[in-house]
Design a protein around this nucleic acid. Structure first.
Lengths: 347, 347
DNA sequence: TTGTAGGCGTTATCAT
DNA sequence: ATGATAACGCCTACAA
């Protein structure tokens, strides 16, 4: 039994010697064993076990030109990632799918613009086979970087620039049906008899926020602009927006918040101002985060399958990384996943 | 058949040819340029720029036997990671420190016991130079795995087994002063005149939870056992524990919860039961999570520098990975970081 | 200071 | 079906 602490790991050569075969045969056994007669293969496997042989990934990568790893780039402009379980859930989905395909996850947190050169160098450096990126802002340089690096990339959330430029083609992303989900939320409030439905939006340079506002306006095309306030996806931002709305439109009887965290902030302000939820004001959130269940009252909200979106992102990327034979010629089309309204006590 | 995915990148050889020097000289320039005359080095750098040369990390790893990457292993037995910002903050600290040292972060999420063989294979496979691990449970197999793999490892939180076995030596970990912080919290409550101080603990197979309970008992060695209830670090677990405590000891006038999330659950139950906070019952949490600030009332809590702990973990590991010359011979001793009580409205 | 040459451990292309 | 053997791209004694 070899001493792992010695640091001298057995090589293909050592296994070959012990099994009395050539390196090529050992390599074949290690990689599936096709075209090796059963008894010989068994002898090789025994030698591998005896020696505790593990393939050297660097040597393998050098010749195959595949690393078996993908980068996950997360921009966190306002450290929002730490308050919002969104990214964590998505990363869990990604991790599961990658793990199922023996692919490693290299996590890169972007703290600010100054990080992008470094990230670009890394992505262009051959460390990873592809990238998953969360493109949050309209002016995010990441799409350009991965394109320049020629690195297969799948985005989480619709990148802002696909809406403006004509070059929508070729960009693969996975997004929830933010617009449709928002429409459902507003229609639900109207169906419950609410007449003055306000909206607390997210930061409008993020497509998810813009799309949810779009859904709200789809249903209320002639709505009062004073009933819309911009938040920042945080509880305190939601609280500020709610306060502003009550100031401007004291008579409002419903609020659709663009995420659950802002809804909790709104809830606090409503209570402080003596408004009962849902009796005086009905409240609907978005995400179905855990806080939606634990809020008091529990929040009616729009659920999106965050973990599933992460898994889908990973799967699309892995498809593009497949052996040239069975690979889609063109980048796959965007995937928009459905949402579902979850009625609870708040509306 | 050529794979269109494989871009043909320039090699050291190509740069050497263009600059009219040998590969060795180019290599020297790439790795710091020591011992190369300035004009020559400049010529090489120009060639590098012109060709857009980037070193091949696999080839480099093959000969240097260093990957420039470390694994971060996160066990998430109950998906707690997604409700609790603790891990996210710690990972941010880790990421910052690693980035500053050109080291990549390979994230591995552990979903269950069945994942450990795979993780072990990976850690023993030479993919990474070291590992950071969060050892949550007393029976966690991770310490054994990394030791068997001979992989330098730093733990986040005191591993359970260091308290039991005699082999405490050699284990490097970073932990907050959970016990001291808990003592501060309880003493604070007593100093404010509270007489019946309850404790909502975390899962007691986690050392952080056990240590906080230990601090509580340090201050109240003869305390009523009925004043302690075990939670699970989630809001609903805190709510359940709070309900049980009120059932058993209706007269309690203070609660120290082992984390802020459980404190919010306790807060909800106290309100439901008509207890005013802090007038009837004073409440102290632990962590100083964002929710402590946004709770109503804001929570008095024990702050730990989570991000700093992450940075410290990474730094300790990088020290052990340093070139043999300036490396500590023995694994560094554990680091226990201080906590500080943050008074707010809840106590 | 610069160049030469060998080897890191694997896969893949040939023969046999 | 199996075995030689040549890459893969880089670092590093060692030689000049």
């Amino acid at each position: 039994m070899p001493d792992p602490l010695a640091g001298d790991r057995p090589t293909l050569e050592a296994v070959a010697a012990r099994a009395g075969v050539s390196r090529a045969t050992v390599s074949r056994v290690v990689n599936g064993g096709d075209g090796v007669r059963a008894p010989l293969a068994e002898k090789v496997r025994t030698a591998i076990r005896d020696l505790g042989y593990v393939p050297n990934p660097a040597a393998r990568t050098l010749v195959t030109r595949r690393t078996g790893a993908v980068a996950v780039v997360v921009a966190e402009p306002e450290a929002r990632i730490f308050a919002d379980p969104f990214f964590s859930r998505q990363i869990r989905g990604i991790s599961r799918e990658l793990t199922a395909h023996d692919t490693q996850l290299v996590l890169m947190l972007v703290e600010g613009r100054e990080d992008y050169p470094r990230i670009g160098r890394y992505l262009a450096g051959g460390h990873v086979d592809g990238a998953l990126a969360f493109s949050l802002h309209a002016d995010d340089p990441l799409p350009g970087i991965t394109r320049a690096a020629g690195l297969p990339t799948v985005f989480g959330g619709r990148p802002g620039w696909t809406s403006t430029g004509p070059a929508d083609g070729g960009v693969t992303y996975v997004d929830a049906d933010n617009r449709g989900g928002a429409r459902d939320a507003v229609r639900y409030l109207l169906a419950r008899g609410r007449r003055s439905v306000a909206h607390i939006s997210g930061p409008l340079d993020q497509t998810s926020a813009a799309d949810r506002l779009g859904g709200y306006r789809d249903v209320l095309p002639d709505g009062d602009p004073g009933l819309v306030a911009e938040g920042d996806f945080t509880p305190s931002g939601g609280a500020r927006a709610m306060a502003a709305l009550l100031e401007r439109r004291p008579g409002l009887d419903a609020v659709f918040a663009a995420n659950d965290l802002m809804a909790t902030g709104a809830l606090r302000v409503l209570r402080e101002r003596g408004r009962s939820v849902p009796a005086d004001v009905a409240l609907v959130g978005f995400d179905d985060a855990e806080v939606a269940r634990t809020a008091d009252p529990p929040l009616t909200t729009v659920r999106q399958d965050i973990e599933g979106m992460g898994r889908t992102m990973a799967r699309l990327l892995l498809d593009r990384l497949a052996p040239a034979g069975a690979r889609p010629g063109r980048p796959p089309a965007p995937v928009v996943t459905p949402t579902v309204l979850v009625p609870r006590a708040s509306a």
